[in-house]
């Protein structure tokens, strides 16, 4: 436990010392939020396509505030974490960790703490900025949003470990991670709302973890209540990703 806390603290400091990682983790979701909220801020919440609300019955700018929180979580899990693990492996840092008896759970746990801190800070920052600039609303059920956020973080951290376990090099992690991130960004409702996607694509796009995260966060945010089904699904994805990640994880 002492080791885990020490590692989490060091990793957090290392993340903050890496200016590039810090900027990327904060900048991308923030910029997309500022753009999309400006463009769709005036939209009518009741507007529909194919008999569905475009913005799930919320204001466009509120929709994108919640979406950018989901995006921050995905950026940590699909981009930052796999690249970090793969480059640690490539450089031989993981060899050193293993020789010094760092257990797998402590390594994973420390990364979770860092990811959680970064995504939470970035989400708070974005929500505050959007509130100041566009007067967007704060979560209707803050606790519900916090719980969804935590589960979403667990889910995407686990996916990040799985990618970090499967992808051999930092290059591969970067390439595959970017591909996955931008694909899911476009299809999970975090870019264009899923209601405007062609109906076939819309149905399939629902299987993406990020699509589930978005709904799990938006429902309590918009005052639709806790979405237990989505929360349960996120928990299942977490376990389904974490088990193989721990099993397949390689230190060198």
């Amino acid at each position: 436990m002492r080791g885990f806390l020490a590692l989490a603290w060091v990793e957090l400091k290392l993340f903050l010392r890496d200016a590039f990682a810090t900027v990327f983790a904060l900048a991308f979701p923030l910029i997309t939020l500022l753009l999309l909220a400006a463009v769709f801020g005036e939209s009518d919440p009741q507007e529909q396509v194919d008999g569905q609300f475009i913005f799930r019955g919320a204001h466009g700018d509120d929709y994108y505030v919640a979406a950018s929180v989901a995006l921050a979580i995905a950026a940590v899990g699909l981009l930052a974490l796999p690249v970090h693990l793969a480059s640690y492996r490539g450089e031989g840092v993981l060899r050193r960790f293993r020789a010094s008896s760092v257990p797998t759970w402590a390594l994973f746990g420390a990364q979770f703490v860092v990811g959680l801190s970064v995504a939470a800070f970035s989400s708070l920052l974005m929500t505050t900025i959007a509130w100041v600039i566009y007067g967007t609303s704060w979560p209707a059920a803050p606790l519900g949003v916090a719980v969804a956020f935590l589960l979403a973080m667990l889910c995407f951290t686990s996916l990040g470990f799985l990618l970090g376990a499967l992808l051999p090099t930092a290059r591969a992690a970067q390439g595959i991670g970017l591909l996955l991130f931008f694909t899911t960004y476009m299809l999970a409702g975090t870019g264009p709302p899923r209601a405007v996607l062609p109906s076939g694509v819309r149905d399939i796009s629902g299987i993406q973890p990020l699509a589930r995260v978005l709904i799990a966060i938006q429902d309590p945010w918009f005052g639709f209540g806790w979405n237990w089904q989505e929360l349960g699904l996120l928990a299942c994805i977490t376990i389904a990703a974490l088990a193989p990640a721990a099993l397949l994880f390689r230190w060198d």
Binding site: V10, L14, D18, G92, V93, R95, R96, A99, S100, S101
Partner: peptide, 18 residues
């Protein structure tokens, strides 16, 4: 075993900024 022994490896690294 690894808790009882010390290891200096021929090839390993630490994070650059630590």
């Amino acid at each position: 075993l690894r808790k009882q022994i010390g290891s200096q490896l021929q090839q390993s690294a630490l994070p650059d900024r630590i």
